[in-house]
């Protein structure tokens, strides 16, 4: 991965003349500010260019953000992982399967209602539900993770953009700050028991990012599903990202399966 500086110079180097450059800084520097942020607080960050000598300082960048209730993904995962695992019966799984990856609120609500479940309410605490089919031998259909905090988050991230197809130079690309998924829920890339790992079909993220529905493939009864909270990598800051386990459930059977 090239830094924007390296990429720009690489594209221009063939057309540039040689110059004496003995003091060129190429690193993308990451500065950690020793300032403790309060949770759930709105902040305004200003960056000023300060002259070496005297002279007025000039604001060069401003960003506003709101802190989370949690310090980092590990903290959030420690809040979700102990959540009780409830079980629900799904009378018709078809509406759930028809959901897009990012349904709107109404689509989510309608699908849940049509599936025979009550329309979802705002959870007051993290909850994990295993949704089972209404078969005589219930089959797991989905695992739904709900949280009072956003599980799926977007923020302004460095994204490499390309020129539109009809642009003057379609091959031109540049970095820009664009909203992108920063925190997401996904099945574990390396499950603890790969042979018994449940197979997920896809993950449906609810509006607002507080719900994630992991749709399971057929025949996953008895298998083990592990879900992770994934922080996306930041290529410019050389941050490889991270993944923290939030759900680890074995899909043994539904509670209403009582043998008499």
């Amino acid at each position: 991965m090239l830094t924007p500086w390296d990429r720009a110079v690489g594209e221009l180097v063939d057309a540039l003349e040689c110059i004496g450059a003995g003091h060129v800084t190429r690193d993308v520097e990451e500065i950690v500010l020793a300032y403790e942020l309060e949770p759930l607080t709105d902040y305004l960050l200003d960056i000023h260019a300060v002259p070496t000598g005297s002279g007025p300082r000039k604001r060069v960048h401003r960003a506003n953000f709101t802190t989370s209730r949690f310090d980092d993904p590990d903290h959030l995962a420690s809040w979700i992982a102990p959540a009780p695992i409830d079980h629900r019966v799904v009378r018709d799984a078809a509406p759930l399967a028809g959901l897009p990856d990012r349904p709107t609120g109404r689509e989510w609500d309608d699908a849940v209602q049509l599936a025979g479940l009550p329309v979802p309410q705002t959870p007051s605490a993290p909850a994990v539900e295993v949704w089972w089919s209404a078969d005589a031998v219930p089959q797991p259909v989905a695992v739904v993770v709900e949280c009072s905090e956003q599980l799926v988050r977007e923020r302004v991230m460095p994204v490499q953009l390309s020129s539109p197809p009809d642009g003057v130079d379609p091959s031109h690309a540049w970095w820009a700050a664009r909203p992108a998924t920063w925190l997401d829920v996904r099945p574990a890339a390396t499950p603890p028991d790969p042979e018994a790992a449940a197979s997920a079909w896809r993950v449906v993220r609810g509006p607002g990012g507080t719900r994630a529905m992991v749709l399971l493939a057929a025949g996953q009864r008895g298998r083990r599903l592990t879900l992770e909270l994934v922080q996306a990598p930041d290529p410019l800051a050389a941050d490889p990202g991270r993944a923290v386990t939030i759900v680890d459930v074995t899909l043994t059977g539904a509670p209403w399966e009582v043998e008499f």
């Binding site: 709107t104 609120g105 109404r106 689509e107 989510w108 609500d109 329309v119 979802p120 309410q121 705002t122 959870p123 949280c147 009072s148 905090e149 956003q150 609810g206 509006p207 607002g208 990012g209 507080t210 719900r211």
Partner: peptide, 16 residues
């Protein structure tokens, strides 16, 4: 009148 979503954890309703 089409409906938005039930409020999420942030208390806001989403519309498509």
């Amino acid at each position: 009148v089409p409906l938005g979503s039930t409020p999420d954890a942030q208390g806001v309703s989403h519309a498509k």
